[in-house]
Amino acid sequence: MALTSPENRLWWKEHLHGVEIVWISIAFLWGLVMFFTMIYWHIAGEQNLSNEAYRVAPEEYGKRVEAFAEKYKVREEGTTSIPVVRPPAGGDAYMFGRLWEWWPILELQKGQSYRLHLSSMDWLHGWSLQPANINIEIHPNYEMIITIKPDQTGVFGVICNEYCGVGHSQMVGRIYVVD
Protein backbone atom coordinates (compact mmCIF):
# COMPACT_ATOMS: atom_id res chain seq x y z
CA MET A 1 0.00 0.00 0.00
CA ALA A 2 0.94 3.60 -0.45
CA LEU A 3 0.66 3.99 3.34
CA THR A 4 3.31 1.38 4.09
CA SER A 5 6.90 0.90 3.04
CA PRO A 6 7.29 -0.72 -0.40
CA GLU A 7 7.09 -4.51 -0.22
CA ASN A 8 9.91 -4.75 -2.69
CA ARG A 9 12.81 -3.11 -0.87
CA LEU A 10 14.66 -2.72 -4.13
CA TRP A 11 11.78 -0.85 -5.75
CA TRP A 12 14.11 1.24 -7.86
CA LYS A 13 15.15 -1.92 -9.67
CA GLU A 14 11.60 -2.80 -10.71
CA HIS A 15 11.23 -3.07 -14.44
CA LEU A 16 8.69 -0.86 -16.15
CA HIS A 17 5.60 -2.27 -17.79
CA GLY A 18 4.79 -1.71 -21.44
CA VAL A 19 1.78 0.47 -20.73
CA GLU A 20 3.84 2.67 -18.40
CA ILE A 21 6.68 3.04 -20.87
CA VAL A 22 4.26 3.96 -23.65
CA TRP A 23 2.46 6.59 -21.57
CA ILE A 24 5.63 8.14 -20.18
CA SER A 25 7.07 8.36 -23.69
CA ILE A 26 3.91 9.95 -25.07
CA ALA A 27 3.79 12.44 -22.20
CA PHE A 28 7.48 13.32 -22.62
CA LEU A 29 7.15 13.80 -26.38
CA TRP A 30 4.04 15.92 -25.90
CA GLY A 31 6.02 18.12 -23.56
CA LEU A 32 8.63 18.60 -26.27
CA VAL A 33 5.94 19.42 -28.82
CA MET A 34 4.49 22.08 -26.52
CA PHE A 35 7.94 23.48 -25.78
CA PHE A 36 8.91 23.78 -29.41
CA THR A 37 5.51 25.20 -30.35
CA MET A 38 6.37 28.32 -28.33
CA ILE A 39 9.73 28.63 -30.11
CA TYR A 40 8.15 27.95 -33.50
CA TRP A 41 5.66 30.74 -32.86
CA HIS A 42 8.49 33.19 -32.24
CA ILE A 43 9.74 32.36 -35.74
CA ALA A 44 6.51 31.91 -37.68
CA GLY A 45 3.72 33.35 -35.53
CA GLU A 46 2.49 36.92 -35.72
CA GLN A 47 1.54 37.39 -32.07
CA ASN A 48 4.56 37.57 -29.80
CA LEU A 49 4.98 39.89 -26.87
CA SER A 50 7.78 42.37 -27.32
CA ASN A 51 10.99 42.08 -25.33
CA GLU A 52 11.65 45.81 -25.68
CA ALA A 53 11.36 47.72 -22.43
CA TYR A 54 13.16 50.62 -20.74
CA ARG A 55 13.39 52.02 -17.29
CA VAL A 56 11.67 55.37 -17.08
CA ALA A 57 10.64 57.67 -14.25
CA PRO A 58 6.84 58.15 -14.23
CA GLU A 59 7.12 61.99 -14.35
CA GLU A 60 9.44 61.80 -17.34
CA TYR A 61 7.13 59.35 -19.11
CA GLY A 62 4.09 61.46 -18.32
CA LYS A 63 5.70 64.51 -19.96
CA ARG A 64 6.34 62.57 -23.15
CA VAL A 65 2.79 61.28 -23.31
CA GLU A 66 1.41 64.78 -22.79
CA ALA A 67 3.65 66.21 -25.52
CA PHE A 68 2.51 63.43 -27.83
CA ALA A 69 -1.16 64.09 -27.06
CA GLU A 70 -0.70 67.83 -27.56
CA LYS A 71 0.90 67.33 -30.94
CA TYR A 72 -1.56 64.90 -32.52
CA LYS A 73 -4.84 65.64 -30.76
CA VAL A 74 -7.92 65.59 -33.01
CA ARG A 75 -10.79 65.97 -30.51
CA GLU A 76 -11.89 65.27 -26.92
CA GLU A 77 -14.23 62.64 -25.58
CA GLY A 78 -15.82 61.14 -22.52
CA THR A 79 -17.07 62.56 -19.24
CA THR A 80 -13.52 63.66 -18.34
CA SER A 81 -12.61 65.13 -21.77
CA ILE A 82 -9.90 62.70 -22.67
CA PRO A 83 -8.02 63.79 -25.82
CA VAL A 84 -8.37 61.55 -28.86
CA VAL A 85 -4.97 61.40 -30.50
CA ARG A 86 -4.17 60.30 -34.01
CA PRO A 87 -0.48 59.40 -34.35
CA PRO A 88 1.10 59.21 -37.82
CA ALA A 89 0.82 55.78 -39.43
CA GLY A 90 3.88 53.71 -38.73
CA GLY A 91 4.97 56.05 -35.94
CA ASP A 92 5.08 56.03 -32.16
CA ALA A 93 1.94 56.06 -30.05
CA TYR A 94 1.84 56.60 -26.29
CA MET A 95 -0.58 55.67 -23.55
CA PHE A 96 -0.33 55.57 -19.78
CA GLY A 97 -2.43 54.09 -17.02
CA ARG A 98 -3.04 56.01 -13.81
CA LEU A 99 -5.64 55.96 -11.03
CA TRP A 100 -8.15 55.52 -12.68
CA GLU A 101 -7.92 56.14 -16.37
CA TRP A 102 -6.14 55.18 -19.56
CA TRP A 103 -4.82 58.32 -21.22
CA PRO A 104 -5.15 59.40 -24.04
CA ILE A 105 -7.59 57.73 -26.46
CA LEU A 106 -5.86 56.63 -29.65
CA GLU A 107 -7.15 56.63 -33.19
CA LEU A 108 -5.21 54.22 -35.38
CA GLN A 109 -5.41 53.22 -39.00
CA LYS A 110 -6.26 49.69 -39.96
CA GLY A 111 -3.36 47.73 -41.46
CA GLN A 112 -0.69 50.18 -40.23
CA SER A 113 1.97 49.32 -37.65
CA TYR A 114 2.49 51.49 -34.57
CA ARG A 115 5.11 51.43 -31.88
CA LEU A 116 2.87 51.61 -28.85
CA HIS A 117 4.56 52.76 -25.62
CA LEU A 118 2.89 51.69 -22.37
CA SER A 119 3.67 52.50 -18.75
CA SER A 120 2.02 53.35 -15.46
CA MET A 121 2.12 56.63 -13.58
CA ASP A 122 1.51 55.05 -10.18
CA TRP A 123 0.55 51.43 -9.39
CA LEU A 124 0.31 48.30 -11.47
CA HIS A 125 -2.35 48.28 -14.17
CA GLY A 126 -3.47 45.71 -16.68
CA TRP A 127 -3.83 46.83 -20.30
CA SER A 128 -6.65 44.69 -21.66
CA LEU A 129 -7.76 45.43 -25.20
CA GLN A 130 -11.32 44.24 -25.76
CA PRO A 131 -12.81 42.47 -27.57
CA ALA A 132 -9.52 41.84 -29.40
CA ASN A 133 -8.36 40.24 -26.14
CA ILE A 134 -4.75 41.29 -25.78
CA ASN A 135 -3.73 41.51 -22.12
CA ILE A 136 -0.49 43.07 -20.89
CA GLU A 137 0.82 43.90 -17.42
CA ILE A 138 1.77 47.56 -17.01
CA HIS A 139 4.35 48.59 -14.39
CA PRO A 140 5.42 52.00 -13.13
CA ASN A 141 9.08 52.74 -13.93
CA TYR A 142 9.05 50.38 -16.92
CA GLU A 143 8.15 51.50 -20.41
CA MET A 144 7.14 48.65 -22.65
CA ILE A 145 7.06 49.09 -26.41
CA ILE A 146 4.97 46.78 -28.53
CA THR A 147 4.54 47.01 -32.25
CA ILE A 148 0.90 46.44 -33.10
CA LYS A 149 -0.91 46.26 -36.39
CA PRO A 150 -4.70 46.54 -36.00
CA ASP A 151 -6.33 44.32 -38.59
CA GLN A 152 -9.96 45.25 -38.03
CA THR A 153 -11.79 48.54 -37.76
CA GLY A 154 -14.04 49.46 -34.86
CA VAL A 155 -14.17 50.85 -31.35
CA PHE A 156 -12.06 48.92 -28.87
CA GLY A 157 -12.18 49.17 -25.12
CA VAL A 158 -9.03 49.33 -23.01
CA ILE A 159 -10.00 47.79 -19.67
CA CYS A 160 -7.80 47.76 -16.58
CA ASN A 161 -7.47 44.15 -15.51
CA GLU A 162 -4.87 44.48 -12.78
CA TYR A 163 -6.61 45.44 -9.55
CA CYS A 164 -5.63 49.02 -8.72
CA GLY A 165 -7.87 50.10 -5.87
CA VAL A 166 -11.44 51.07 -5.41
CA GLY A 167 -11.83 52.88 -8.74
CA HIS A 168 -10.47 49.93 -10.69
CA SER A 169 -13.78 49.23 -12.41
CA GLN A 170 -14.06 52.82 -13.75
CA MET A 171 -10.76 52.53 -15.55
CA VAL A 172 -11.78 52.21 -19.18
CA GLY A 173 -10.00 53.75 -22.14
CA ARG A 174 -10.50 53.42 -25.84
CA ILE A 175 -8.78 52.80 -29.16
CA TYR A 176 -10.44 53.61 -32.47
CA VAL A 177 -9.34 51.78 -35.57
CA VAL A 178 -10.41 53.48 -38.78
CA ASP A 179 -9.87 52.80 -42.47
Binding site: E77, T79, Y163, Q170, M171, V172
Partner: peptide
Amino acid sequence: SRRHWDIAFTEAPV
Protein backbone atom coordinates in the same frame (compact mmCIF):
# COMPACT_ATOMS: atom_id res chain seq x y z
CA SER B 1 -11.29 41.02 -16.07
CA ARG B 2 -10.53 39.28 -12.79
CA ARG B 3 -10.78 41.17 -9.46
CA HIS B 4 -13.37 43.47 -10.91
CA TRP B 5 -16.38 44.89 -9.12
CA ASP B 6 -18.51 46.13 -12.00
CA ILE B 7 -18.33 44.58 -15.44
CA ALA B 8 -20.85 47.15 -16.70
CA PHE B 9 -18.33 49.99 -16.05
CA THR B 10 -21.15 52.31 -14.97
CA GLU B 11 -18.85 55.07 -13.69
CA ALA B 12 -16.23 54.92 -16.46
CA PRO B 13 -15.43 58.04 -18.53
CA VAL B 14 -16.09 56.11 -21.75
